[in-house]
Amino acid sequence: HSIEQTELADVPACDSLNPGNLQLVSKLKNPSGSCSVDVSAMWWEIAGVKEPCIITACEYAVSLWKPLDTGQWEKMYSWHFAEVPVLQIVPMPDVCNLVCVALGNLEIREIRALLCSSDGGCEKQVLLRTGNIHAVLGLTKRRLVSSSRTLCDQQVEIMTLAEGGSEEKQFLMPPEETVLTFAEVQGTQEALLGTTIMNNIVIWNLKTGQLLKKMHIGDSYQASVCHKAYSEMGLLFVVLSHPCAKEREPSGSPVFQLIAINPKTALSVGVMLYCLPQGQAGRFLEGDVKDHFAAAVLTSGTIAIWDLLLGHCTALLPPISDQNWSFVKWSGTDSHLLAGQKDGNIFVY
């Protein structure tokens, strides 16, 4: 019932790690003068050929880059935003030629779909949603889930995007407290998971909109972010990061955690804590999980990578050219890691 039982993974010493496990494949520099905020990779059809493209987001422009045979990247399209800055890219899994972005200042104010005209000739953007949006996630089957608050209540909305960006809407039953993050549940079709501001995990049935369960996961770490959820043998396994975790000695600073939840009883146990190697300082700033690998940008400006099966940190990538890392994403098209700096440099490992 308590996550106090969490085991600490073997924590290797800092000097046994290096970025040698990561090979720099290519680099691209966004010449836009504004601050770089996010990166993603997706398939895009260009002149009849599907290419594994990179999407970069600066404050007021999102660009699509096509790979060249030389290992370099060519900018193909850019979408510009005049008034509200971009906060994050919202990738749509399993979708070609469509990406969404969240725009706002401190909180998300708008979600837009970015696409091209049917002849591939010009960039189009479609306003999908406005409001005080707390969380958004692209789901399989061209669906987008978002939660927003009005003065009285919270709305959790699923949009199914049709060709051209127009959409169908459906609402999920909202929990009382604000939803912070969403995750689809691998292994259980039509299950959607959310983390809330009160340290609860909620589960919905995407087909019926029912709120199935609310489960408290303990108060050890506040405001947890859910990066991955999968269902196996009747249990729900959830990978969380802990932006508010305090540094703990001597075991190190917990950055990610794997917990197991029994959805029938709402009981949970901690399975593994993923800590920084000894000698490394820092807390989670932002990160990404794909398959059994987790990557995080730390407050120290370093990127750390964990193998979730081995249970420990396998690589550390210190700041390059005296520039701290500011975001990191796993590629959706291959096994690449995309690491970005505020000045527009994107390194592909």
Binding site: I203, Q210, L212, M233, P263, K264, T265, G270
Partner: peptide, 23 residues
């Protein structure tokens, strides 16, 4: 983690919770 910590487990938890939850 031991099964005893988590109570009785059901492989069909999603269907069971969907049939129990309010529509």
């Amino acid at each position: 983690c031991s099964q005893a910590d988590l109570g009785p487990i059901s492989i069909n938890w999603f269907e069971e919770l969907s049939s129990e939850a309010p529509p």
